[in-house]
Amino acid sequence: MNTAAHSSVFGAVHLGHVVIETERFADWRRFGTDAIGMHRDELDTGLMRFRLDEQECRFLLQRGPAEDVVATGWHVDDHAAFEQIEARVRARGVPVVEGTAEQAALRGVERLLRFPGPKGITQELCTTPLTSREPLRMLASGWVTGDSGMGHVAITSARPTLMHGYFHTVFDARLTDYIDETISGVKLKIRFLRVNERHHSIAIAAVRGLPIDPVRTRVQHLNIQAARLDDLARSYQRVHELGFEMALSVGQHTNDKELSYYARTPSGFEWEVGWNPIVIDETTWEPSTHRGISTWGHTPVGGSIIAKLDQFRTGARSLTRREKTVPALSGTGVPDD
């Protein structure tokens, strides 16, 4: 096997884009543009993109029934690292498909490879993101992307060790820390993984002691980072004024110290707008466990007994179906945590 495939790509990988499948374009248009405050580009009746910065695409919305995230895109700094990751995936017998020219153009990248990921979320490997000449038209003053990538993805899983192993194998993801939390009597353990200086690009939440997944959607939430505290506060106000559901009020997390709130998207998963998380210093950082998700705030907003019962029903149904994993990419180098 090629030795290059084993050299670390940590730091060269960044969350670059997310693909969402939805039929609720009108609601997403209001949510993304008027509430959250991102730049929107309409491509045709079945395609829409949101921008956060100079890159052509950060969120691609395509028409379909899933009402969920269907792919996450990882921008890789150079062709050498891109080919290292490709070699790892191919060497383990996992099918890799080269994206079409149209798919690459929609995502605003030059090179695009697609391969299976946990929970059926396609992983997309990209290089050389394209920039737009069109000035940003958005309500926010800006969003933090750059070397940290554009935010993070949080996923619930009944197979957290396999999921951790997947991102370690493919991207050399490192464990940043854990959070233990009890919500409505259910004990959760959350693993936070980083692929660069951002505290985490992937969060994996699991119910301790029970192989259930309490969330309908493949992702529990997506996160983007506001450039200024004022951007966070104003978007929070707009979400309320426009009538979108708020999941959690403003609060501060125990581990990354990010100030944030969580709104519910038109597709049902949550959307976290955050501000000012810590940046990891690789020379000094050691993983630890935090008790509780938040030092203050992040209190549930609204909700009902019916909604809680639906969540328990979802968890019960998850016992009857096996979570999608990619065993060939999920088994090495990770302690059984």
Rank of each mutant, 00 (worst) to 15 (best):
G302L: 03
R238N: 09
R30T: 10
F167P: 06
V273Q: 12
Q311C: 07
G46F: 00
R191P: 01
R29N: 07
N255K: 09
A206M: 09
I212W: 00
L139I: 08
G73F: 02
H152L: 11
K119T: 08
Y166V: 04
G165N: 15
E258W: 00
V109K: 14
P266T: 01
Q84G: 10
H199P: 04
A205G: 15
G243T: 04
L175S: 06
E197F: 05
P287D: 07
D213M: 03
F59P: 13
H39F: 03
A26P: 00
D231V: 12
L175E: 14
L112D: 09
A227R: 13
G251I: 01
D77C: 05
G251C: 09
A205I: 02
T182C: 08
H253A: 10
P116S: 14
G268Y: 01
I179C: 09
I278Y: 03
E124D: 15
D213F: 02
V207L: 06
M1T: 10
G46C: 03
G117F: 00
F171H: 15
R51I: 02
A173G: 12
E42Q: 11
H199Q: 06
S288R: 15
A263T: 09
I36N: 11
E67T: 01
A154P: 05
H240D: 04
H164G: 04
F171K: 11
H200I: 10
A227H: 07
G302Q: 15
G302N: 14
A140T: 12
F115T: 12
T156D: 03
L15P: 05
E134G: 08
V96S: 09
T283P: 02
E245Y: 03
V109M: 14
S318Q: 09
M48W: 00
D336Y: 05
R88C: 05
I212C: 07
P65G: 06
S267E: 12
T332S: 15
G99L: 00
V97F: 01
W28I: 06
I155D: 09
A203M: 06
L15A: 03
Q237K: 14
F50S: 06
D53I: 05
Q252L: 04
H240Y: 02
W275N: 14
